[in-house]
Structure formats: structure tokens, C-alpha cells
Design a binder for these strands. Sequence first.
RNA 1: GCCUGGGUAGCUCAGUCGGUAGAGCAACGCACUCGUAAUGCGUAGGUCAGGAGUUCGAUUCUCCUCCCAGGCUCCA
Length: 669
Amino acid sequence: MAAVSVRLPDGTTKELEPGTTALGLAQAIGPRLAKAAVAATVDGHPVDLATELAEGNEVSVVTAATPEGREVLRHSTAHVLAQAVLRLWPGAHFAIGPVIEDGFYYDFELPNGERFSDDDLERITAEMRTIMGEDQPFVRSEHTFAEGLELFADQPFKREIIEAVGAGGEGVDALSEGASPTSVSTYWNAPGFTDLCRGPHVPSTGRLGHFALMRVAGAYWRGDEKRQQLQRIYGTAWESDQALAEHLTRLEEAEKRDHRKLGAELDLFSFPEELGSGLAVFHPRGGTIRRLMEDYSRQRHAEAGYEFVNTPHITKSNLFETSGHLDWFADGMYPPMELDGGQEYYLKPMNCPFHILIIKSRQRSYREFPIRLFEFGTVYRYEKSGVVHGLTRVRGMTQDDAHIFCTREQMADELHSTLTFVLSVLRDYGLEDFYLELSTRPDGKAVGSDEEWAEATETLRSTALAMDLDLVMDEGGGAFYGPKISVQAKDAIGRTHQMSTIQLDFQLPQRFDMEYIGADNSRHRPIMIHRALFGTVERFFAILLEHYAGALPTWLAPEQVRVLGVRDDHQVYVDQVAERLGGAGFRVSMEPADEPLGARIRRAKLLKIPYILVVGDDDVAAGTVGVNRRGSERPVRGVSVDSFVEALHAEVDARALPESQDTVEAAPA
RNA sequence: GCCUGGGUAGCUCAGUCGGUAGAGCAACGCACUCGUAAUGCGUAGGUCAGGAGUUCGAUUCUCCUCCCAGGCUCCA
């Protein structure tokens, strides 16, 4: 038989004995590659190392320490998790066990309605290690549908996955689980354990081991609230113990910058239990940050031609009947209060109907458009108890809400300038890395004609495409009244957050029967653009706090400078310096010298104050300060007060980022 | 709303196999007067989340409620 020739990723070809597997190829290339190999790709398809290679195949070996390799490790570890659970809970049913970012999960239904507790994770981990110690092979085989159903006769979830494909529908889930339109693939590990799976897998369980089970959770079967809730176990797996440890360290680092933790440490806000879930109070330091955020926002909006309005927090029910919110979102609204002999009043969950009423307060001419109304509007939403989360998901929140009313002809220009404005303002707050998402008409739950949706969606799409940013689609993710563009931003540790949204709305103007008089002297209906830039002040606050790990840029810092005297007889000079800085418009404080200097510096450092000025005998004599800048290795002594003030002005005016605070230098000798 | 785990001093936590609690930091007082991330001593601080039940006795056991965390679902 002739040798088999395969092509490698570097473009070279390799001659192999007929029947050589992917693992054999790896061994032929080198023992280290063979050792690191977990799977392979053949002509672009991921396969097991046991796959026999054929003439002309393009083959690459997948090693453990790559994104593809980790997927294989995680998927295989998920199998072992399932095997362990089935061993420990005879009669358990297993559902799906996919790879997710940085890990995997597996869903189970335990016999007699049993549930996992945290303690079970240890038992399961131990069982998994036993299975890995047994070094069981992952043996792939292909079956017909009938055989598949037979094989999983006592596993209803597996049967449902197979049947879904057999019935020709809902194939996506099933495909990744190993059921395809033509066959069913499985992996056998040991007598009594076969899992439905597409693969590929590592050759044997002995290749696994650098994993940790993280937590248990409930999860609805197929993500459907109306179906039964399964027991889910989350885990993570890596190519080495070191990689696993690094991952766990990253999680700890992220925890340290959690805004809820920082909020308490920096005395910014709290959630008094007396108020109820999801209701925050902002303390003076947090209130100052909010004020600064809001002030700058107001300034930018004023410059961009927005007009400022104010509207009440409650309204008669008819407003939300007209808007349609009561039809769609009554569950998410606080229940009504009954006043004035039966009239129902609602706390407002949205500002838009109020702004519409402002437009409708008198007849409008086309000459007035576009009209851009802006309000920091506080709204209340009855979020389900399980979803409330820090400042990012609350029940009382303030939207930086703008509604732009314009003619159809102005619509495209307005969208473009709005999106440009939004990105510019976000950048000023220090967010840099963006992509856009276009959310289209939701299934079932939407108002308006197909034509209107199509036009609105296309208009938004062309606006987004003009931005020179990546655009991803979010099919069905729009609001009931219109599609939206959302701006997604990456933070300092690479997480993405949905920031601003821009929604195009043909519906509410109709529902409220809005109109203006056009140049043709007849009545026309305006277009409405909904736009939140921060989203909510609370959520944006939280994202900034985590982005900066609490070390806000000087222009946003609640306290910018703290002046410390070396001894208490420097206090007169401390007061002079503080007064000078306060007079120059900076937020400054001081602390008397009744504790050692190191202790006072430490306290200021823990509050992440950008500048600590230390003054002693030399400074009193020379009119200077010692500048201890946040993030710098060593302080700079002998800086003149004038040059410090000047540098601080420059930094604040530039809204400089914390890492670029290279502004204060020692005064020339 | 559902699943799992939790709530002890302002914060971080220990403890009580059922006999009403302790540390460090913070706060307050006194002393120390110091040149860049923790000075010393002392004082005070708790309905052990709230309510009900079992018990001679509950912070501890049981139930309910509230609140928090991680998920699921949801997010105008």
C-alpha cells in the first residue's frame, strides 16, 4: 500500500504509513508534540487523535495550551464530571455539558428530586480524580437514530436531544451534543458510561486533572423557565496546575475591583436593608463622583444642542396604557397606588412618555426639529428578586435619558451625530475599546409593521457601519417599539459591558398621535430616537469604578489632594496650602499630625486619593510641597506650590487617565 | 420568580455538640510630634438579620419573612 501524504500547517507535507492516526503524526513530528497533543484538526474539522489520516488531509495537531486545546480539555472534563455524578447518584439523568468561557458545566436531574449541595462538590471532585486515575479511554462510535435512542433508553434528556434532530428541528443544540441529521455520535469511557457527544476528546481520562469544580446552580432545561429546573455544576479546567492557579488568581483580582466591595471600602454608597432590595444611597464621596459625572455630562449635552427638562416620578395609569408599557412590562413595574377615588397612579419605569408630552404641549413646526430633550430621570422598576445585583441591576435608578424628535429626513443625520456624540463622551470618561451591536425585532413581542421595522433597522445598520467599529448582530434583541444600536465597551480587565443604547422608534409617536406642521403646511408624524448614554448613572458609576479599580482619574476623584504636615507645628502651613488648593477649585482635605506620618499616608493611599502632599520644615521654609502621587514609586520633594497647582489644573482640564499622570515634576533647583 | 450557599461589633472573621459571645482593623480617649503604606496604652461598641415554634433555657434546632452572593429565567 502506498504511503499517505498529509499537509501540515506550515505548508510542508509528511509521508506516513497507511493507517497512521493523528497521534501517530504527532509522534512522527516529535515526542514533545505528541505529549502536548489533545486532539487534531483534519481539513478544518476538529477530530480525535485516534482518527486515521487519509491522503491529502490538511492536518494540524491541537495542543493543550491553546484555546482549541483547552476546549477539548474542558469538554472531556465535563464528561468525567457526568460519569462521576452518575456513579455517585445511580439513576441520575444527565442533560448537556458544554464548554463555556474559561470552563464548562454539566446539567443533571438527580433521583427523587435530590439536589446538589456545596459539600457534594468535594465528593464529586474525588470521584472524578479516581476516574482520571483509571485512565479510561474515550472511545468514539457512530450510531443510527434508532440505536441512539436505544442506547439512551433511560436518559430522557439525551433522547430528547436525539429526537429533536430526528424530527428535523432545533438542531443547533443537538449538533454540538453529538446528534446530527445523519447520525448520532457517542463516547464510551467505561462499562456503564457512554455520553452523547460530537467530540473531539482527549485520548483518555488520564490526560485530565488540572480542574476545579466551582459551584452548583439551578438551571432550566433548555433555558425555558416553564420547564423543569436541573442541577448545574460549573467547573474550570486547564492544561496545567499553574494555568489553573493563574485563572483562580485572575478571579480573585476581579473580585478585588468589584464595585460593591470598593463602594464599602471607599465609603461611596450602601444598600441599607431598611430600604429594601436594589435601592442604593450614595454617601458624600460617592455623591461627589456622581455630581462630577453628571456635571460633565450636562456640559457636553448643552454643547451638543440638548435641552434640559424635568418630569415627575409618578403618573396616572393612562400614560403607560397609551405607551404600551403596561401591556408589555406590567410585571416589571411597581404595582399602582389607588388615589382620588379609584384613579391609579404608577411609579415611572421610563421617561419617554413624559418627554413626548412636553413635545405635545403645543403645536410644533418642522422648523423646530430636531428637538433634543435630556433629563437625568429617576425611574423605578420592580426587578425580580433574583436579578438585583449591586449598582448594575437595581430597582431605583437614574437614566441619563434623551429623546430626540425629528423628521424622517433628519433621522439618518441625527442617528449619526448621536452615535458620534455618545462615543466621544464615553471616551472622555476613559473608555476606549468599543464595538457596536445591532438588535433587531423581537419575536412575537413587538408593535409596528414589517416595513417600519425594516426601515428602522436598515437606518441603524448604515449608521453603525459608518462608525469604523466592529458591528455584531443581536437578532431579536430589540425593544418592543423599535430596533437599537448598543455600544459595548471593554474595561481594563477585558470584560465587555453594554453601555449606551440608541433606539429608533416609529411606534410611540403613533401611539401618542404626535404631529408637526411641515413645510407643505400639512400634518406629519415625527420620528423619535431614544438614547441613554450612561445607561443609568448607577450602572455607569459601577463600571467606571471597576474599570479604574477605584483609582478614579483626578478629574473624577471625590478627594483630589490630601495635605499632611510632618509635625503638628506645620499645621499653619498645611492650612495655607490647603486653602490655596481649595481656592483654585480643587477638592482638598488634611489630617492633623496626631498619628505617625506613615499611618496617615497609608490611610490616604487606601482611599486612592490621587495626590498626597507632605510638608515639613524644608517646605515651610521654601514654599514647597512633597508630592506623593498615586501609583508612583517614590515621592517628589521640593515642588513649588505654584507649579503643583499648574500641573494639577492641566491634568484635570485634560481629564487625564490615572496611568498618564506624568505631569508633576520637581521644581528646577 | 426558581436552585444553591450565606447573614455574629462599622469592616474582615472566629466561636457556641443548646447555658445570651471573642479577635484584628476601624471609632473614641490619653500619651507620642514623627519626611512618605499600620506608634503605644486604654475605653466603648452586639436584641448573634427579623418573627414564630420546640425547650427549663435558642445566637445555636425547626419553620416563615427580609437581605446578600453565585447561577437560571428576565432586563422597556
